[in-house]
Design a protein around this nucleic acid. Structure first.
Lengths: 176, 176
DNA sequence: ACGTCTTGGTTCAACTTTTAAACAAACCTA
DNA sequence: TAGGTTTGTTTAAAAGTTGAACCAAGACGT
């Protein structure tokens, strides 16, 4: 089969995407590193914990929503634990699992850092987008994500009755 | 000033973007690593060289289009040079600069690897987008990139008369 | 010319992150 | 209970990144 090369439009879109994502990630990382002393991934861990049911999440679940390997998450959490921002706890239900719990210190750091982070996200991204484009971006990205998700998690129905999805964080969500 | 938190729509878009970009970069990297033995960044170096005027580019220019530091590029090129895919050359015009040149071996690797890469890009991204969305994506990304560009390169006019921008590569472009 | 400033690029060492394979403990299922 | 699976960690090696220091070569002003 002769390769289906990218059309000129696709070329342009692809290159633009590469550049934008590289620049964006750099900007986010730089800001978070300066003002929070941590890379984006670590911040995401905190953020996700902060609006999880009980400020705690199973390692595997967290890894899954963050789209990273368990190993990578172990590293991140260990690091965060060392700094006292996260604590590990055992799961009563399943003694294999451990839960990552956001500590008060972690919450504090998050609250201190979130405004700057959000500001950066705004300045870099949303302030340059029309409301319409925000919608378009979401649609595009969810499509892509869904597509790439399924490839390894090739299961049909992902029913996990005991995994609650409920409201929880009264204070404003620090994005991710 | 009280933080302008993200609206729910922005939240969703942002989370979707994070997930998608993480998954996408992973997919691309995995494929390139397996079939080409190199990370995406390295491939980008080769690709950019391949459709540059004389299959050669000044380090600084290359770094700039790749949006990475010169230091980082030095590392990448050194690595690629070690594998014989790229060679360094001195610039006649300016004895300070060195040019990265794509070798025949490098071109060969690129040609061997490009189809798989493009296929991955298609499968992960473009096959899930309508023509309209491709346009939207480009527009969004160029906007973002332009915005983030200017911040450090705060110069007004970027006129460099002697930097030609001409056609060159007859074979199909291996995307980036 | 001369001294100074800027640019282009590399080097180096410290560090952080990532990967992959190997494990052990806890579950599950028949 | 045997056999397989899931969860999470450990470990060692490799890779990549950063940032400062540095040198050489242009540019500029006088």
């Amino acid at each position: 089969m002769t390769t289906r090369w990218l059309t000129p439009e696709e070329q342009r879109a692809w290159r633009a995407y590469i550049a934008a994502s590289r620049l964006l990630e750099d900007a986010i990382d730089r800001q978070l590193q300066q003002e929070g002393g941590m890379p984006h991934l670590f911040y995401s861990v905190l953020a996700n914990l902060s609006d999880a049911p009980d400020r705690r999440l199973r390692m595997t679940d967290l890894a899954e929503t963050l789209k990273i390997t368990r190993s990578r998450l172990t590293y991140a959490v260990t690091r965060l634990e060392r700094d006292g921002l996260v604590r590990r706890e055992n799961c009563r239900r399943d003694k294999r699992s451990s839960l990552a719990v956001l500590t008060d210190a972690g919450m504090a750091v998050l609250e201190r850092t979130a405004p700057g982070h959000v500001e950066t996200v705004r300045a870099s991204l949303f302030d340059r987008l029309t409301a319409e484009q925000v919608g378009q971006l979401e649609e595009i990205c969810t499509g892509i994500a869904r597509g790439l998700q399924g490839e390894d998690a090739e299961s049909g129905a992902d029913d996990v009755p005991w995994r609650r999805r409920s409201p929880c964080s009264p204070p404003p969500p620090p994005s991710s």
